[in-house]
Amino acid sequence: MSDLTPLRDLLDHHVVGHDEVKTALLLALITREHIYVEGPPGTAKTRLAEVAAKGSELDFFFYQLHRDTRLAELVGDIVLERRKVKTDGAAPGTTGEAERIHQRIEPGGLLTAEVAVLDDISRAPGEALNVLLRILNERRFGAEPIPLMAAIATGNPMDDEYYNEPLDPANLDRFALQLRVSGLIQSGLDDAKTLIDRFASGSVVEQPDPEPVTDRATLDALNRRMVEVEVGAAVRAALLDVLRTLVLEFECNETNSLLTDRTFLVKAIKILRGAALLAGRDAVDLQDLNALSWMTTFRVPPEAHEALPRIIGRVSRQVRAV
């Protein structure tokens, strides 16, 4: 039980299945990290993000990216400021006036939202995303801090058939949490049945807007409490052992992986604290390490990602034994 149980219930009420995405979404809101969800069209990616935002009464910005996306569409209007200035050095016999022209951005969209959904992020040209993702990373635009708590990006699988270019690895790294989802029909029989039953009974024909069940103050309080969540020496040792295994046994390196210090040494601590809070604890437990697999999805080779639960299990046993 945690303060976010009502929000979790709301997500369950509106979307069937996708347990992991729901948990990761809540984790993103607590830890204020961005999340990238990749999956085929029609797997409720956008719906989940929308319910989470509306259910917590947050300012919500939705943008569908496309291959012609320009920065101004995401951050507000481009404004030309003209200011009259006195000229000097004008030729004799002339009357002069001059204008100083300055281009700036009137903040809007992403810059004023608390939760942003960036749909189909893999469709935007990689270079156009660079500034956007930097804003996401630094949470400020120019010198101004922005109120954004979490950006939720969705993308289609990076197969050729979707005509996407894969995201630049550095860009993907801005999303601390990364998940891959598949359709219920492909994955879980029970969930698929529930989904079909719901539609058959007509209960989802009219999707009402979700009622707010929590608010920014609750999320802020949770975020502040993260500081107090203890990350003990055993957990740190286990985390380092997991990372060491990825590097030494699975040969993750700079070419095949994005095993960056920022993500796995700095943000991982935040994620672990958030996972503990979400489980209603005030100290990180070895089982919270499982949240690491939401960080490795697109950062390490597939076989290493798949082996992660096994690695975590082994390392946890070793640490407990000591």
Binding site: V227, R236, L240, V247, F264, L265, V266, I269
Partner: peptide
């Protein structure tokens, strides 16, 4: 620069983890 993890500098990585665990995230 090389990364601590990918550069195999695990002792330094442990120092960084400890520093982060002691520090307020926000």
């Amino acid at each position: 620069l090389s990364g601590l993890l990918t550069g195999g500098l695990f002792d330094e990585a442990a120092v960084l983890l400890e520093r982060e665990a002691a520090r307020a995230p926000s």
